[in-house]
Nucleic acid binder design. Structure first.
Lengths: 196, 196
DNA sequence: TAGCCTACCAAGCACTTGCTTGGTACGGCG
DNA sequence: CGCCGTACCAAGCAAGTGCTTGGTAGGCTA
């Protein structure tokens, strides 16, 4: 099975690259770093990939396709507004758990990479994510599940930032499960930290 | 006044460097970028600074000294727990307003720079910040101002992340003042977004 | 007016970067 | 057995990197 072996080796190299891009940044990671971590010489990477750019491109596209399919699932469901918001938060923390490197790369490099025409889809995905949350929050306010006086745009930014920035400290397999973190976060978000 | 002129030019160059470091990252900014933005040649920078590292060092130390003096002020006051938390949040958003580049550099580069012995103080400042927030939150729980069942550590991380990550989208002089953002954020944090 | 200081230029050195090139080892297949 | 495809090596190039060097212009001061 030569094709399967190829795909496997390629994916293996992408996983190694993703870890390094997440840890040290895209520009800050050299093709020699990646090759060293894979146990080959830097030139050998170019048997599998066109360029360093195409590696991060592949990593981000694969991850985002998965993530947005999950969001679409929530949007299309007939759950009530509050349940949809809870599901969207939970699946985001689950994504951090299952693809921490990919999330970190997206968080840290989207600004820089977005400057290149090749990565124009990053801005589109960003707008798509905004749409998801604005829809959910507006629905929440209209249905009476959320406060009527909420600044929806600002709330969107706070949710987005707080959820994704957790990738900086969350470690899969650590003391707290991603489900437990999502629970705690939803409690703070929905009911606040003040004593009632 | 030769010394004052020197200090002024030096500070001017540091401001230019801070903007570039914040926009493109420390490693990703070249000494030629900085010199170009200042209208001089790259070699001329070394009349004012030992190295590129010492530029970012100066930027971060100056900013952090200011910031932590402000936190100490809050800690030492005799306000009640809830007021102290509100003041700490507000002064953080004010810091983003007044020193957006410095905050961005600290947020984006602390991990990378922290690896060098020279920047060991970054880890110390991080621990100091943790201490400030943990003290405030613990005091809040003990005084009854905050819920008794709060996970203080997790709450600390959420506050820290949400406050500082605002530097990614907040623009001084934009539609929202930093005071208005702090107000909205404190409402969400303290009372939640759910309809009561 | 001589000496000194600040600010800068012009040139280039040693090194690192992403990527290219021509080649080898080896397993499977007709 | 001959042929092809996969996976890799060895060597190196052109561009770009942080930083150094020796020098100049012009203002201030003794």
């Amino acid at each position: 099975m030569p094709e399967q072996t190829t795909a496997t080796r390629r994916d293996e190299l992408l996983g190694i690259a993703a870890r390094l891009f997440a840890d040290k940044g895209f520009k800050n990671t050299t093709v020699r770093d990646i090759a060293d971590a894979a146990g080959i010489l830097s030139g050998s990477l170019y048997h599998h990939f066109d360029s360093k750019e195409s590696m991060v491109d592949d990593i981000l596209q694969t991850f985002q396709a998965e993530l947005f399919a999950a969001y679409d699932d929530v949007l299309a469901s007939d759950d009530d507004a509050r349940t949809k918001i809870e599901r969207a938060v939970r699946l985001s923390f689950a994504a951090i758990d299952q693809n921490p490197h990919e999330v970190a790369i997206f968080q840290n490099e989207a600004d820089y990479l977005g400057g290149f025409p090749r990565f124009g889809y990053l801005a589109e995905r960003n707008a798509q994510s905004r749409n998801v949350w604005m829809t959910l929050l507006t629905e929440g306010v209209e249905s009476g599940a959320l406060r009527a006086d909420l600044d929806v745009t600002l709330t969107y930014r706070f949710i987005r930032d707080t959820v994704w920035v957790a990738v900086r400290w969350y470690r899969p397999g650590g003391g707290l499960s991603h489900e437990a973190i999502a629970d705690q976060y939803l409690t703070i978000l929905l009911d606040g930290i003040a004593h009632e």
